[in-house]
Amino acid sequence: MTFHALQVCASRGAYEAIPTEPMRLDLAGVCTRMQAEGIDVVDARVMLIARLEREVTVGRDGRILIKTNDVAQAERLLAVIERFLELPPGAG
């Protein structure tokens, strides 16, 4: 999955990644995969809130908000999250 380059969100308090193609994520599946790797994640039905080194929110439409002002940290956390958005090999 490829996202647009990260951009600072409008309120300048976080970085936002927007999918290149419209999508609708299976958040329950993403949540399960995160929890299986020990990530503390809250399932709010229309979004997931994952507690990594900074909080990351994943929306059903694939938008990801990373609560940091550090672009390098945002890129690193985006890479972590993207792993969980893919179906595991052999699934689906």
């Binding site: 309120s11 976080a14 229309v46 908000l65």
Partner: peptide
């Protein structure tokens, strides 16, 4: 100052 807007807004 910079901050994160409410993400619960639909």
């Amino acid at each position: 100052r910079p901050g994160v807007c409410c993400q619960a807004v639909p």
